[in-house]
Nucleic acid binder design. Sequence first.
DNA 1: CTGCAACTTGAAGCCCGCTTCAACTCAAGG
DNA 2: CCTTGAGTTGAAGCGGGCTTCAAGTTGCAG
Lengths: 145, 145
Amino acid sequence: MQESLTIGQLSIRSGVASSALRYYERMGLLRADRTGGNQRRYARSELRRVAFIRISQQVGISLDEIREALESLPAARTPTPEDWTQLSQLWRNRLDEKITLLTRLRDDLEGCIGCGCLSLRRCTLSNPGDQVADEGPGARLAIPR
Amino acid sequence: MQESLTIGQLSIRSGVASSALRYYERMGLLRADRTGGNQRRYARSELRRVAFIRISQQVGISLDEIREALESLPAARTPTPEDWTQLSQLWRNRLDEKITLLTRLRDDLEGCIGCGCLSLRRCTLSNPGDQVADEGPGARLAIPR
DNA sequence: CTGCAACTTGAAGCCCGCTTCAACTCAAGG
DNA sequence: CCTTGAGTTGAAGCGGGCTTCAAGTTGCAG
């Protein structure tokens, strides 16, 4: 078993193109050692970072946010418990929000799509008068930008 | 209560910029009637469509996929039960996948972040030898592109 | 020690999801 | 009527997340 991976190996193993891996490095999401000849050599742990990046991306989190999360982790080899506890908490909220959103979306589709109204939270049929309209001017559907 | 909404009203109510609403229309995600003077008038139901669009976007679904979903809904005013059952099933799988992804991500952060390894599914500490390496060449972390 | 695949960089290009701008028209209150 | 804010279009521009290209270097198998 090798100690480190070339960019090609990491690419195949992670399923992410080499060009993307280089891009991630420039963006500060990955790091790599260099050989005498200036080629990248990745620690095996970078494989996990890449997985983390892709999963996060798939659920709509930007590279910027991902970088922030990754940065405050094994940063200075002294990840004070307080630091990661706080970070984990931050992400937990973000993720919980998204999970709630998804679950609602799924259940609404499941439960009410039949009436053809594509309701969210409340079917038109069971919500005559358009509840939203009564929430005052400028009412939003709780989808902060 | 008004029958239809101007683009400005829809914008305020949905929290989405008018320019984005016009863009959605060009992309085939929304539809609007026109006044004699060519101004858009949206049916109230479009408010729900916009909410659906934004929620979907926030969890990483592209406008293209959203359009596909919306298209096969109250399309010809005759949404055969079979049609939407199938569609709903399709999305259910997509959404379930994402929910699983998110839940895992959240739990992993919560549970193992403490060791500083940012493991996914298995902490390095409890997975010596790098399990992934043993899954044969080209092994992926189940993150299809 | 040679040859070829894999690697390097920087710059340019591409698609998505909008926003901005210019130039103009519409709708409604005074 | 007239004014003024809201709406219209098309074209251009922009940031994010890459990919592609060109021109060159490295590293390993034979």
